[in-house]
């Protein structure tokens, strides 16, 4: 039986809500996996939509690391990344769709195996919207 790798991902600091222009700092680390099993690791800060419509996504920060980018070819040790958050889109809980922000780490192992870990956060302070009237058209 193969053990699944452990991806530890966290936002640095107690906050889960950020203002536009704030600096977001996050850390991730791998465990329960051999160093030579890791093919690549991608860290990103992104927004995506959820709801009735098709999902849209926008990547604000993206970093892809290969074993050649790390000391001794080992991508497992603690890695910290930081980015300044943009002014839009702000997190939004709408009536028929939602905009969510998150940090995401995607791990690629040998033989095409892929693992993903994400941590949500809020950007801005737009209050939730209430439905008033709906009209659907084909």
């Amino acid at each position: 039986m193969t053990m699944e790798p452990l991806i530890s991902l966290c936002l640095v600091g107690p906050r889960r809500s950020y203002a536009a222009g704030d600096e977001l700092v996050a850390e991730y680390q791998l465990d329960a996996v051999l160093a030579d099993e890791v093919q690549a690791i991608e860290a990103s800060v992104l927004w995506y939509t959820e709801g009735k419509g098709e999902e849209d996504m926008g990547v604000h920060f993206f970093e892809r690391r290969l074993p050649t980018d790390a000391e001794d070819g080992d991508l497992r040790p603690l890695r910290r990344f930081r980015t300044t958050l943009p002014s839009s889109p702000l997190s939004y809980a709408g009536a028929i769709f939602t905009i969510r922000w998150c940090i995401r780490v995607r791990l690629f192992l040998r033989r095409g195996r892929e693992y993903l870990q994400e941590q949500p956060f809020t950007l801005g302070s737009v209050p939730a919207a209430a439905r008033q009237e709906t009209a659907a058209t084909a």
Binding site: C10, R16, A19, T122, G124, S125
Partner: peptide, 28 residues
Amino acid sequence: TLRAVVTPAQTGQATRGQRSAAASIEVV
């Protein structure tokens, strides 16, 4: 709306989440 809003409940959750994540990293 550009400002961040941190409610006391969010702060509590965030702190607990942070502690558990930090703990897992320390163990590793």
